[in-house]
């Protein structure tokens, strides 16, 4: 059977603006992926546990509050602690360009700022999966 791409879409932190997260969730579904949506106010611990149990290929997070420099790397640390190194982690939101190199160094493979078309995110996921068969 063909390999389905499974994506965890999560909103870490406290901001409640989930328009972007929901639009991307729908777009990924329409691109044939299986999206596990976890809702608002997720702690990094919750996100990582869910990613492991759901055995996802991708974790996609969105933050609009400016807490990305704290929360994104924290998710990466926890994944590493659990020995997970084959999950593609991407982030989106209001993220100043200056912050992107730091986030990439922390292991966030793709950072998408406002105005990124969903098709670009979809392509990025398809081309950068860390595992396949």
């Amino acid at each position: 059977m063909e390999r389905k791409i499974r994506v965890l879409v999560a909103k870490p932190g406290l901001d409640g603006h989930d328009r972007g997260a929901k639009v991307i969730a729908r777009a990924l579904r329409d691109a044939g992926m299986e999206v596990i949506y976890t809702g608002l106010r997720q702690t990094p611990e919750q996100i990582v546990s869910a990613a492991v149990q759901e055995d996802v290929d991708v974790v996609a997070m969105s933050i609009l509050s400016g807490a990305h420099n704290h929360l994104f790397p924290r998710v990466m640390d926890l994944l590493r602690e659990k020995g997970v190194d084959d999950v593609l982690v991407i982030g989106g939101g209001v993220i100043p360009d200056d912050d992107i190199p730091g986030l990439k160094a922390a292991g966030i493979a793709g950072v998408f700022t406002p105005g990124t078309p969903t098709t670009e995110t979809i392509e990025f996921i398809k081309n950068n999966l860390k595992r396949g068969d």
Partner: peptide, 25 residues
């Protein structure tokens, strides 16, 4: 499209970090 949005987990996310609980969509 063959895709899916799996939303059941949202209601159970508070158990995500409990080692005695495993949730799979």
């Amino acid at each position: 499209t063959g895709g899916a949005i799996l939303g059941d987990r949202i209601r159970m996310q508070r158990h995500a970090t409990d080692d005695g609980v495993f949730i799979r969509s």
